[in-house]
Simulated scan of single mutants.
Amino acid sequence: MAARRAGKERYDSITYFGDGPWDQEASKTLGYNFVSVGNRINSPQSVLDYTEAHVALSYIGL
């Protein structure tokens, strides 16, 4: 829905932020970059919470 609302057909990459194994699996299935939030799951890219905005943004190239 977000992609449709943005009005853009293609993106270089899409990043999914999530806190559950279902989020991680959905990202893998869809081919999205995944960043885990919190400590419920392990991920090479993770943040404890959104106070680590600079870390989260570094995972999406900003």
Rank of each mutant, 00 (worst) to 15 (best):
D19Y: 05
I41H: 02
G31K: 05
E9R: 15
V35C: 08
T29M: 12
N33H: 06
A26N: 05
G38M: 06
V37Q: 08
W22Q: 12
K28M: 09
R4P: 01
K28V: 02
V47H: 03
H54A: 15
S43T: 06
H54L: 06
P21M: 09
I60K: 03
A26D: 03
N39E: 15
G31Q: 06
K28Q: 10
G18E: 03
I41G: 01
D23N: 09
L48S: 13
Y32T: 01
N39R: 11
M1K: 11
A3K: 15
P21A: 08
L62P: 02
V55K: 15
T51P: 00
A53H: 10
S27T: 04
V37M: 07
I60N: 04
V37I: 15
N42M: 05
I41L: 06
E52L: 07
I14M: 12
I60R: 08
N39Q: 13
Y50F: 15
G31S: 01
K8T: 13
L62G: 09
Y16C: 06
Y32P: 01
N33P: 00
M1C: 07
L57N: 13
Y32D: 03
R5V: 14
N33M: 00
D19G: 08
N42D: 13
I41D: 01
V35T: 05
D19E: 13
F17Y: 14
R40N: 13
D23I: 02
P21D: 10
V35Y: 03
A6R: 10
K8Q: 15
T15F: 07
V37W: 08
G61F: 04
L62T: 11
G18C: 05
A6L: 15
A2E: 11
S27N: 01
P44Q: 09
I41F: 11
V47S: 04
V35L: 06
R40C: 06
G31Y: 05
F17C: 03
Q24N: 04
N42E: 13
S36M: 13
S58Y: 02
P44V: 07
Y32W: 15
S36N: 11
Y11P: 07
L57I: 04
L48I: 13
E25S: 07
G18R: 01
